[in-house]
Amino acid sequence: MSITKRIIPCLDVDNGRVVKGVKFVDIKDAGDPVEVAKRYNDQGADEITFLDITASSSNRKTILNVVEDVASQVFIPLTVGGGISSVKDIRALLNSGADKITINTAAIKNPDLISEASNAVGNQCIVVAIDAKRKANSPNGISWEIYTHGGRNSTGIDALEWAQNMELRGAGELLVTSMDKDGTKQGFDLELMKAINDKVNIPTIASGGVGTLEDLYDGIEKGKADAVLAASIFHFGTYSIKEAKEYLSKKGINVRNTYD
């Protein structure tokens, strides 16, 4: 099997601008999504994920322009998430040039949306985002619960059951974020990743907690993830995508080499 493990930088977009520091030496405007996406493409990013954090719903349409502009100049898969709640929203993003969309809260409110969306646009476009937190007391060993709204609202849903349910309903991929690890730079929740990968046979993306290149390696090797997503280590210039790939490649992970 020679499919490569993917490295995905994730960008927060607010009102059409990239927020959080993006440090490239030769970039004029770090807030311009096209410039940032181009730079990540040049470094060898395998995909780019945009998370629309625009609060006001009246400004929601700006993400469509962002996707349109980026997709006209950057030719790698683009995934877009944030505030998507209907097949209509999904179609609008795909028509603008997105390749995949991620859904979290809307799937929990209405799991049928995943089946509907998957039938309408194909499961390869539908990524279900799972935000999971460890439960304090679990009689049968470790278990995780699904959260929404960036980890603020608990749902009572078991993460592993939810992952299987979403696969059955037609999710093409799962984006798994550990709410315990997110922002800590202590590495992915490897047990969570491994547990989900033992349950499903669709690709999974590990997210939440990356602080070092070794964390990326662990997510793939120990967590069995097909792709790893990170934000801050790339944005703040701690490591480049190229460095990440060189590191993984040296440790025997099959990655797409774009720098020979």
């Binding site: 099997m1 993917r6 395998d46 093409g172 046979n201 690709p203 097909d226 797409r256 774009t258």
Partner: peptide, 28 residues
């Protein structure tokens, strides 16, 4: 293997063809 086959994979060239101009063997 996971299904769908989703991601970057190599293509080994099997025959010469103008479509391969400037594309290396085993490109992703």
């Amino acid at each position: 293997i996971k299904i769908p086959h989703m991601g970057w994979n190599k293509v080994s060239k099997k025959n010469d063809h103008p479509i391969w101009y400037k594309i290396k063997d085993e490109s992703y």
